[in-house]
């Protein structure tokens, strides 16, 4: 693997993403852990017919979810507004309140975007499996519900379980606090969320970080994602 993965600028980091690509986007949904500079660069880059794989489809811009009061949220909505997304795979596509509509909902209502809804624990386990070479697994989650329709069901220890397939993507956008030039990532707080799993499950993983440091400056005990999974690191400040 290359020993310096530093990428100079967000535009560079996403410049080779083709139309039709599948992209995982980390974070739980709020500002913490969300690689929104990469999302903005992808909007400006303009690739179309994308599959976006993320916990939410962008609810903060209409609800403020997970953003400090007084700041203007940025989220996945900028891609839906720009007509770049053909398919969304995730767990929480729309705002909790029925009276609020996000850009995903508008695109969904116009039939521009397809939705694959996945229970959150199954979602992250499919991604974990995708990164770990496990093609499929069984889980009791969703057994007997419409989210299990069309899937193989087997009974283990008297309990119905649904077969779920691993999930991978062409690209993963993850967000961490610190990267070193080898691609080791350090996370803080609840901003881990889906980032560590997604970092393992894409052909090309791009990490948006607050700062990039030389090897040795991250305590090995604090490495949340080992550099072997990471292809590019790009810093929010120089």
């Amino acid at each position: 693997m290359p020993t310096n993965k530093t990428c100079h600028g967000f535009a560079d980091a996403v410049s080779d993403i083709p139309d039709g690509a599948s992209i995982m986007v980390g974070g739980f949904g709020g500002a913490g852990g969300l690689p929104f500079r990469l999302l903005t660069a992808l909007r400006d880059h303009g690739a179309r017919r994308l599959t976006i794989i993320s916990n939410t489809a962008g609810v903060s811009m209409v609800t403020g979810f997970g953003w400090p009061k007084g700041e203007k949220p940025i989220d996945h909505s900028i891609l839906f507004e720009n007509g770049q997304v053909a398919r969304f795979i995730g767990t929480y596509p729309v705002p909790g309140s029925v009276s609020l509509r996000n850009a995903f909902q508008a695109a969904f209502d116009r039939k521009e975007v397809a939705l694959e809804l996945v229970p959150q624990g199954t979602f992250v386990e499919r991604i974990r499996a995708g990164g770990a070479g496990i093609p499929a697994f069984f889980t009791p989650t969703a057994a007997g519900t419409r989210l299990a329709e069309g899937k193989e069901v087997r009974t283990f220890d008297g309990r119905a379980c649904v077969m779920e397939r691993a999930l991978r993507a062409d690209f993963a956008f993850v967000r961490a606090a610190v990267a070193d030039t080898l691609g080791n990532l350090m996370y803080v707080g609840s901003s881990r969320a889906f980032n560590p799993a997604m970092a393992t499950a894409a052909d090309i993983t791009i990490a948006e970080v607050d700062r990039i440091v030389p090897p040795g400056k991250i305590d090995p005990e604090r490495v949340g994602t080992p550099g072997v999974y990471v292809d590019r690191v790009v810093a929010r400040s120089a």
């Binding site: 767990t91 929480y92 596509p93 729309v94 909790g96 029925v98 909902q105 969904f108 939705l115 809804l117 996945v118 229970p119 959150q120 624990g121 199954t122 889980t139 009791p140 989650t141 969703a142 057994a143 519900t145 419409r146 989210l147």
Partner: peptide
């Protein structure tokens, strides 16, 4: 899932209900 909305958030509810 509220049928009148036509779209729902599943989040972690199914995993919590099962686990």
């Amino acid at each position: 899932f509220l049928p009148s909305r036509g779209i729902g958030n599943v989040g972690g509810a199914m995993d919590l209900a099962a686990g």
